[in-house]
């Protein structure tokens, strides 16, 4: 029950920054911190699990006072936004942690940045404004290295096969695409990004006949098209 209370308190948007909260009983509650980072270049070949492991050791190297889960097997509480599929780069990955001692956002950014390589640069640290469940859309920038044909996407429905926990299912990609436009030779794909309806841009590009490309996730948004914070 206690942990539930903590969760409710710490998600409160008006919580005072840079200080651990105090309850009336004077228990210091862990304070939520959101870390925005990149996953660039060769790191597109490492899995989400690898990112988790890397972040875990990096937080220790950086000396960030991370809150550990209590229980039989304590581990640092880390929640990531929207796992990235292998092969895709990103400038907008998010990690939520809680800290148990005061440490400024700037210091967290500097320390954690020094404990990671430049391909995994920490770009921002702040108090979370939205919840991960609010994520609804993502924008991808695709640089094609071979010809592509977008006309396949003109059809009313574009059915593709997808592996799911229930085996192979058919989904309509069109339902998941919000828009596709070409800008300076790059294909900007705007797609659904909630847990149930996740658009994999690689799947879109495969349909257009282009498999040699670079894909970068540029931004994620909530249902009202506000940039995720």
């Amino acid at each position: 029950m206690l942990s539930q209370n903590i969760t409710q308190q710490v998600l409160h948007p008006n919580s005072h920054e840079d200080m651990c909260e105090q309850t009336s009983r004077n228990i210091v509650l862990p304070k939520p911190v959101r870390i925005k980072f990149e996953k660039m270049n060769v790191l597109k070949f490492i899995s989400h699990l690898d990112v988790t492991r890397t972040m875990k050791t990096a937080l220790t190297r950086a000396g960030i006072p991370v809150w550990y889960t209590e229980g039989f097997n304590p581990h640092p509480k880390m929640i990531f936004s929207l796992p990235l599929s292998i092969g895709t780069e990103s400038v907008c990955e998010y990690l939520d942690i809680k800290i148990t001692e005061p440490m400024s956002h700037e210091e967290i950014k500097t320390r954690l940045g020094a404990a990671l390589t430049s391909d995994m640069a920490v770009t921002e640290v702040y108090s979370p404004k939205m919840k991960f469940q609010d994520i609804a859309y993502a924008l991808y920038e695709v640089t094609p290295y071979e010809p592509y044909d977008l006309s396949v996407l003109d059809a009313e429905k574009v059915m593709v096969k997808k592996h799911s926990k229930k085996g192979e299912i058919e989904i309509d990609l069109k339902e998941r695409i919000k828009s596709i436009e070409i800008k300076d030779g790059k294909i900007m794909i705007f797609g659904r990004a909630d847990q149930l309806n996740y658009l994999n841009p690689e799947q879109v590009m495969a349909l257009t006949g282009c498999t040699d490309h670079r894909i970068i996730r540029k931004e994620i948004y909530n249902e009202r098209m506000q940039i995720f914070r």
Binding site: V42, L43, F45, S47, A115, D119
Partner: peptide, 22 residues
């Protein structure tokens, strides 16, 4: 460095990328 096109085709490409911390 090795091209991404090749790395995409092989199992466990993380073995071949280097660039680790440290």
């Amino acid at each position: 460095m090795i091209s991404y096109k090749i790395l995409k085709k092989v199992s466990k490409p993380g073995r071949y990328i280097g660039g680790e911390y440290g």
